[in-house]
Design a protein around this nucleic acid. Structure first.
Length: 587
RNA sequence: GCUCUCGUAGUUCAAUGGAUAGAACAGAAGGUUUCUAACCUUCUAAUGUAGGUUCGAUUCCUACCGGGAGCACCA
């Protein structure tokens, strides 16, 4: 449609002997101002030395002369020189027909056809709680993965875990201090929660160790034992703790709707990265200034990235890759990880990492090192960052008063929804499943409704709120629409997009835009365009629902309204899927 | 100090350089013998400050003010 209108404009301009390179065509913010709009008259008015409004009128006259396509109802000049296009009733009924025929493939595009993309996200560490930041990364990563898939990409999901390091020593210290926490009965979540408590215990002991550094010393000792696997008892605890916390994460992924294809462990990436760093130590790379990548400095191996700073690009700084103790740092592991990803997937076109924005600066340094070592990779790496979950002061803690973890938040959301569902007639199993899906929707939506870059002020009450601008609102609209369709089946009213009524419903003016929205989300790696769009569509549908009786035998347009309702459910279902949100048929 | 980010209704968020800055929550007023009221309808209310570029700026540039993050052996 967009191209059709552009060609029409181009033709009209040609008749007026005006040449243009590019025509911008957009949707006016207000539906009352038409379905498409162009600013072309204003843009070229200066060059042609004509009043923009008069020019716009000439163009419109020309377009009208060209015989309007039957898809366009009318064209008019508005404001200071905009040309607005109003699409015809027929266009909208055809778009409803298209959606009904395509079902859930409506909205797909092929800009990334056959591209192989790996996306790494979530990255919780074994022995530590899955906190709300992981929830945030997971929601964003999963949604982007699905959006890219909808654009034709072959996506693999990767998770990267810190399976060695001080955090584990702290947890094991805690477990040794309080053996009750080593309870091996109960669910994975229960055991993992105990390990989380042990971690908090060990962490506190490590940091507040004023009495002669006993705890600190002991934890450092445990750390070495973990590294060398030299202590049988610690090995046993480690094996159990690793397994049970990783399994607890899996249980959460299942609830969240994520399935990873690759797991990378820090301990395995370390030697890979270390070899790369040591092999390139003091090596002069081929560059006009004969600069080195890795060099020694105060016994450590560092990368003085600031040497590569360029005007107009983010400033880089020095990072330590191998400590003076000879141990690889996070940067080296990340370097190893990057190379390992490309090695595992030689055909990979793009490697995406999703993390919090605090990691932005050193990831840039790592990326620079990678691209100096392997220039091919430079354009194939993308780091997507998101803000922090900030808590409004005085509102800490979950409903049960504990610290908020990802799991407690999801549980609280689910319980809150269960309370709301008392009047509905469901089996226990159904009820649990629906409450879980709606709870996940509430949390995910509150993360995905805003642009990924910024912080999110995390308000528990609001995040599980079901009103207005929320995930459950979207699901509710979907469930309602389904209910209408059930009724239509019973009444034997079949959908028919051809018998349309004269009036055009607002929801129709939104549904056909879905593919454009998906495309934009894919290009910008931004799920929130879809979230905002779905709210608009849901609102329009709820309004339609409120003002029309859809299933009504006597109404000739009933079968059209049923078709429109089907179209709405398909778009909503697909859109929510792209956000990583389930669509219960009933709620 | 340097770098990166962000400043929009009372609050939490939108707005590919365009028209009357859009929602939600909170507040005010209505709506249920009809398909799920987790809903609908109506009202009140905002671009940090000062310049610049432009026909036109919330958006781009500069300075300032204010919040957040990062800046050598933690991840």
């Amino acid at each position: 449609m967009q191209e059709e209108i552009k060609n029409l404009i181009r033709e009209a301009l040609k008749n007026l002997s005006i040449e243009v390179e590019d025509i911008t065509l957009e949707h006016p913010a207000d539906l009352a101002r038409g379905d498409y709009s162009t600013n072309i008259a204003m843009a070229i008015a200066k060059n042609v030395k004509e009043n923009p409004k008069k020019l716009a009128e000439k163009i419109v006259a020309e377009i009208s002369r060209l015989n309007l396509e039957k898809n366009i109802e009318k064209v008019e000049v508005a404001g200071v020189g905009f040309i607005n296009f109003y699409l015809s009733r027929k266009f909208f009924s055809k778009s409803v027909e298209e959606i009904v025929n395509k079902v859930e493939s409506f909205g797909k595009n092929d800009v990334l056809a056959d591209k192989k993309i790996m996306i790494e996200y979530t990255d919780p560490n074994p022995f530590k709680p899955f906190h709300i930041g992981h929830l945030m990364t997971n929601a964003i990563g999963e949604s982007i993965a699905r959006i890219l898939e909808h654009s034709g990409a072959v996506v693999s999901r990767a998770n990267y875990q810190g399976d060695v390091g001080l955090h584990i020593a702290r947890a094991i210290y805690g477990l040794l201090q309080n053996e009750k926490l080593q309870d091996k009965k109960g669910s994975n979540a229960f055991q993992a929660a105990n390990i989380g408590r042990a971690y908090a215990l060990g962490s506190g002991a490590y940091e507040n160790d004023v009495g002669g550094f006993l705890a600190k010393k002991e934890i450092d000792e445990i750390n070495k034992k973990i590294y060398h696997k030299s202590d049988k008892k610690i090995n046993e605890i480690y094996d159990w703790g690793f397994k049970v916390t990783m399994q607890a994460f899996e249980d959460l992924y299942k609830i969240l709707g994520t399935k990873f294809d690759f797991y990378f462990l820090e301990s395995q990436m370390a030697p890979i990265g270390e070899r790369i760093v040591r092999d390139n130590l003091d090596k002069i790379i081929d560059s006009p200034h004969s600069k080195m990548i890795f060099e020694k400095s105060d016994d450590a191996i560092v990368f003085k990235a600031e040497k590569y700073n360029k005007e107009g690009q983010p400033k880089l700084h020095t990072r330590v890759f191998i400590t003076s103790q000879g141990l690889p740092t996070y940067e080296t592991k990340e370097l190893g990880l990057t190379f390992e990803k490309f090695k595992t997937n030689p055909e990979m076109n793009l490697s995406i990492i999703v993390t919090a924005s605090e990691q932005m600066d050193y990831m840039r340094v790592v990326a620079k090192a990678v691209s100096l070592l392997h220039p091919d990779f430079e354009s194939k790496m993308k780091h997507i960052t998101h803000g922090m979950m900030r808590l409004p002061s005085g509102k800490m803690g979950s409903r049960k008063g504990n610290a908020i973890t990802g799991e407690s938040l999801l549980n609280d959301a689910r319980d809150f929804i269960l309370e709301k569902m008392t009047d509905r007639d469901f089996s226990n199993e159904e009820r649990e499943k629906i409450a879980s899906d709606v709870g996940v929707a509430a949390v995910k939506y509150s993360i995905l409704k805003q642009a990924t870059g910024g912080d999110i002020v995390y308000d528990f009450e609001k995040s599980i709120s079901l009103d207005g601008d929320s995930g459950p609102y979207l699901q509710y609209s979907f469930a309602r629409a389904n209910s209408v369709l059930e009724k239509a089946k019973i009444a034997e009213i079949l959908p028919d997009p051809h018998v349309f009524p004269p009036e055009i419903f607002e929801v129709e003016k939104l549904l056909y835009k879905f593919p454009e929205i998906v495309l934009r989300s894919a290009k910008e790696y931004e799920p929130h365009y879809i979230a905002n769009y779905l709210i608009e569509v849901a609102r329009a549908f709820n309004s339609f629902y409120g003002n029309n009786l859809i299933v009504k035998k006597e109404d000739k347009a009933s079968s059209y309204k049923v078709a429109l309702t089907y179209a709405f459910t398909f778009v909503m279902k697909t859109g929510l899927h792209l956000l990583g949100i389930e669509t219960p048929e009933k709620m």
